[in-house]
Amino acid sequence: MNIRIIISVLFFTAILPADGLLCAQSAPTDSLFVKPGDLSNLIFQLKTIIEKNYFDKEKAASLNKILTEKFANGDFKNLSPEHTTEKITQLLRKETNDIHFKVTHFSTKAANNQQQNQAADNGGIAEIRKLKNNIGYLKWTEFRAGPDAFKKTVQALERLKGSRALIIDISNNAGGNGEAGGFMNDHLYQSKDYQQLLVKKCNGETRWHQSEVPYNNTEGPRFYKTPVYIITSKNTFSAAEYFAFIAQETGRAVILGDTTAGAGNPGQGVAFMRGGSDIGFFIFVPTCQIQTKAGKSIEAIGVIPDILLTSGDWLEETINIIGSTSAKGPGTKQSTP
């Protein structure tokens, strides 16, 4: 079987694609239906990747049995690429209760989109500004890590230095590299105890170990005593969820908005294409579990906000909530995990 493996990328939530949780987006194709050869290859590759990489081997065996039966019964036959990948994605999520499972497709004939993402250019930070009453606002849309991204993060924090309170908006953040959360946290927490909150166990491992990436950098301003307010929504995924989760569990920030997606298990993304085909597939399979030392997980649950935002303007609503608090306000207490 002539298969071209396009990419194989590890994404780790909080400490993560991931992921840009799911960087491979569905693209239009010229075929109305997935061709039999492409469908057969998709199921074969999916079963192979699940068997090899999914952290729960018992569920992996069960999934592969179900996929084999449904393929044999023609459940995925004569479907569009969009319908095929969505149907498989929903099946995997239903059987495992794991939101991070994802199957998408792409086409070699699709337009080559090389447009630069503004958030990517700014280390994943889309907007920084000072609001009324000296409230700092940071809109964070992607968790990007590395020297260039961290430099942009420090520059953003410099602009917010001296703020009375800090709003970090991750309501449209699909996650990404969890090291970004660790780097940001180093500027928010005076104590490093928060790094011990989460533990992780990955495929093939028998013991839980520390999940949070430790940082002890000296660059950038510190906000140890600044009240922090984090805005979340159902569009907050993966590593971004753990950023909010740590802040909530330690009492460092007030979480506002709506419950997050509940995509807590980090994983691995693989893209592949059958030789001679014009359609390829991207599969994201969870490879690890993350929870608190007490066993609390956000998988399929999400982070439930301390304050539910209900207006049409969440930012203005958050500003009003901050204004109704005392001068010190909430979000400065840092409890020990």
Rank of each mutant, 00 (worst) to 15 (best):
Asp306Ser: 12
Ile298Asn: 03
Asn41Gln: 15
Asp313Tyr: 12
Glu95Trp: 00
Asn2Cys: 14
Gly323Trp: 04
Asn265Gly: 08
Glu142Gln: 11
Gly262Trp: 05
Ser311Thr: 10
Pro17Ser: 15
Ile99Ala: 12
Ala300Glu: 09
Gly220Asp: 01
Val270Arg: 06
Ile231Gly: 04
Ser40Asp: 15
Ser311Pro: 06
Gly269Cys: 13
Gly178Asp: 04
Phe272Leu: 08
Phe143His: 03
Trp208Gly: 03
Ser233Tyr: 01
Val9Lys: 02
Trp208Tyr: 07
Lys192His: 00
Leu160His: 01
Gly146Asp: 08
Glu219Cys: 11
Pro227Val: 04
Asn53Trp: 10
Glu316Cys: 00
Gly220Ser: 05
Val270Gln: 01
Ala263Lys: 02
Ser80Ala: 06
Thr104Glu: 03
Ala110Ser: 09
Leu91Pro: 04
Leu131His: 02
Leu22Gly: 09
Lys333Thr: 15
Leu32Cys: 00
Glu58Tyr: 07
Gly37Ala: 14
Ala72Val: 10
Gly302Cys: 08
Glu158Pro: 08
Ile168Met: 13
Met184Gly: 08
Gln268Arg: 00
Ile279His: 01
Thr96Lys: 01
Ser163Glu: 07
Gln155Phe: 06
Ala300Trp: 08
Pro337Leu: 07
Phe243Gly: 10
Lys192Ser: 14
Thr108Gly: 11
Thr85Asp: 01
Glu95His: 07
Leu91Ile: 04
Phe223Thr: 02
Ile279Glu: 06
Gly295Asn: 10
Ala294Phe: 12
Glu299Gly: 12
Ala300Tyr: 05
Lys296Tyr: 15
Val228Ala: 04
Gly146Leu: 08
Met184Pro: 00
Ser335Thr: 15
Gly295Ile: 15
Gly37Pro: 10
Ile3Thr: 07
Leu160Arg: 00
Thr141Ala: 10
Ile5Thr: 12
Lys293Tyr: 04
Phe55Asn: 03
Lys65Pro: 01
Leu197Pro: 08
Val103Leu: 01
Ile167Phe: 00
Glu212Trp: 06
Gly181Ile: 05
Gly146Ala: 02
Thr85Tyr: 07
Gln334Glu: 15
Thr232Asp: 03
Gln195His: 00
Ser171Arg: 04
Gln116Pro: 12
Gly302Phe: 02
Phe55Ser: 04
Phe282Gly: 11
Arg207Asn: 14
Thr141Met: 14
Asp306Gln: 09
Ile246Gly: 03
Thr236Leu: 09
Asn78Phe: 10
Gly176Met: 11
Gly124Tyr: 02
Ile255Phe: 07
Lys200Phe: 03
Ala156Met: 00
Gly37Ile: 13
Ser62Gln: 11
Thr13Val: 14
Ala14Thr: 13
Ile168Gln: 07
Thr218Phe: 01
Asp306Gly: 13
Ser335Ile: 12
Ala174Thr: 08
Asn112Ser: 14
